[in-house]
Design a protein around this nucleic acid. Structure first.
Lengths: 339, 339
DNA sequence: TTGTATGCGTTATCAA
DNA sequence: TTGATAACGCATACAA
């Protein structure tokens, strides 16, 4: 493999000049530049990334911690990140945290040691305090999909409270009053926020909260199914349900179908995330979309800005959820109570 | 940030000794080792990855080119790859090729220049000849999800012909004789192989091939929908359809529903890939599963073996498809022809 | 505009 | 078992 020295000798210039040509080429005469370029081409010379990194203390890599390298829910974030890093010639070091604090810590340390120029973190397990501690370690760091107290200026997140409100309000606007909620994992802030939004929407419409209409779905399909069964068995009537994510909504719909109830005729359902399956379910699922790609792009732009690479443009940090209307919501049947 | 020199001075040994301690520590007395380790801990010393790479000419990174960083279809491959690289302390450099030769070439060059110790390629666009040329460039290279002629010993792939056969045979076994096929992108080998499997199964059962029962679905939902519409309009009767992937199967089912036909009562449907949506469709989709995680793991193991890192165990290269039976297939109705 | 010389932090070779 | 020292390949401060 040809080195900068090989090029310099063959071009009858110094290594420094070759280096200049490679890096922008300021302060090099046109003739020398052309000569050097010719030799570079001739030799098929490519700078050694290691040596360059050692000299500049830059890797050209952005480390990313995600809950899962390929996630049906958060995949869009990674796509968004890549779309901008690619444009700036940076590469991606990806490691997954599996939504567990310990694994996330390991992934973080790993990527940091590998000298990522900056880190983008999508964390589920780690505590706020820990993330704050990490932020003091020197590596520029951006958090995505979460708002960490104390790092507000480097967090790209969805307003989940607004999302919960949006979903619930949509049902209220259609005339529903008895609206159940299938909650997500209580350990996850997103889940709590969506629940808060649900409560706020009810309060805004003067609908009293009924705790017996809330069941735990744990963000998974089976959980949603069990939750819906419990709600039906509970005997408290309701005409609609807001599930904290699409998967638990799918489970709920399955339980409703098993109980011989029709969606949306007997019960309306709203999900959250707008994952692929929302489109494919029958009836297709009305849900709340997270603009994941855009969030990923914002996070990456923020990270690059911290490195002085991307223009320090205005980056949106708080993203608003969007209601995607499909077929799973209808007005409540007059005088009908399914449960 | 502390360097090896700082450690050596404080421990009153040479940098060389510190280096030895870090890398296995052979040929170091227990006392010195303990002393060095203590200082390392005290200073929070971490070796500089760049310098180490420059000296060893190894990055500890595996480059991966995938069609999409987060793909509903191929995501499992990346998960499988990560599960083994993680175990060996290697990191992942990920870049996407967007299923286009030009982008794939760029991604390959990029990762190669970034000095990945090895590359794992999941390619859709690049020609075989090009991949073979790449393999001569020096970087150990493994291809996944495809069998490249001339690189057979480093290709991890699914037997797509067997998959096409499996799907078609399943329908034949249920008594279907008029079986349509919604083909995938003709430019992609997988699509052609699945079609070949379809033909073979028909031939094995003595069922004559009818070209008017084949329509192009292009691997996408709308394509599948259009294809099914064309098949129905074509007027040739059929009682089942094998779609080259789940998405086009979903489109086909949509078209059938729009035409007032029932799945599986009027028409049975088999898909391919066993993506998430197969589980969520109504009726849920009988389909052919690719063992993607396992394939990813095999590819990674192969790559590490080429680096002399993982044990050179026997790695399975050819993977067999698995039929996943769900609700979209039934025996044909006696004397009934939908189209 | 160009060249010289040095440093970046390791690993590895060779002696001791 | 340990140490001195030369690579590794590039960027850059300083000189010319």
């Amino acid at each position: 493999m040809a080195t900068i020295k090989d090029v310099s000798q063959r071009a009858h210039v110094s290594p420094a000049t070759v280096s200049r040509v490679i890096n922008g080429g300021n302060g090099v005469s046109d003739v020398t530049r052309a000569a050097v370029l010719a030799v570079i081409d001739e030799l098929g010379y490519q700078p050694n990334a290691f040596a360059r990194s050692l000299a500049t203390n830059r890797s050209g890599g952005i480390g990313v911690v995600v809950s899962e390298v390929s996630s049906a829910v958060y995949g869009g974030i990674l796509q968004g990140i890549e779309s901008v890093t690619e444009r700036h010639g940076m590469h991606l070091l990806v490691s997954s945290g599996h939504a567990r604090a310990e694994r996330e810590r390991k992934a973080f340390e790993f990527l940091r040691q590998r000298r990522s120029d900056a880190l983008i973190l999508q964390l589920d397990g780690a505590q706020d305090a820990e993330v704050v501690a990490w932020s003091r370690l020197g590596v520029p760091l951006v958090v995505v999909g979460r708002r960490v107290e104390g790092l507000a200026d480097r967090c790209v997140f969805l307003d989940n409270v607004a999302g919960g409100e949006l979903a619930t309000r949509h049902l209220l606007d259609r005339g529903h009053r008895r609206i159940a909620h299938i909650a997500g994992l209580p350990s996850i802030q997103d889940a709590r926020d969506r629940f808060t939004g649900y409560l706020q929407a009810l309060a805004d419409h003067g609908v009293p909260f009924d705790a017996s209409l809330v069941a735990d779905g744990g963000f998974v399909e089976e959980g949603g199914q069990r939750a819906m069964r419990r709600l039906l068995e509970g005997g408290e009537p309701f005409t609609a349900v807001f599930a904290a994510n699409d998967q638990s909504a799918a489970g709920a719909m399955r339980a409703l179908r098993d109980a011989g109830l029709s969606v949306p005729d007997d019960v309306s359902v709203v999900g959250f995330d707008d994952t692929l399956l929302a489109h494919y379910m029958v009836p297709s699922l009305t849900t709340v979309r997270q603009p994941l790609r855009e969030m990923g792009q914002a996070a990456a732009t923020l990270a690059l800005a911290r490195l002085g690479i991307a223009a320090r443009e205005e980056v949106n940090l708080r993203f608003e959820p969007v209601l995607v209307e499909r077929e799973s919501v209808a007005a409540p049947r007059a005088g009908h109570t399914p449960a």
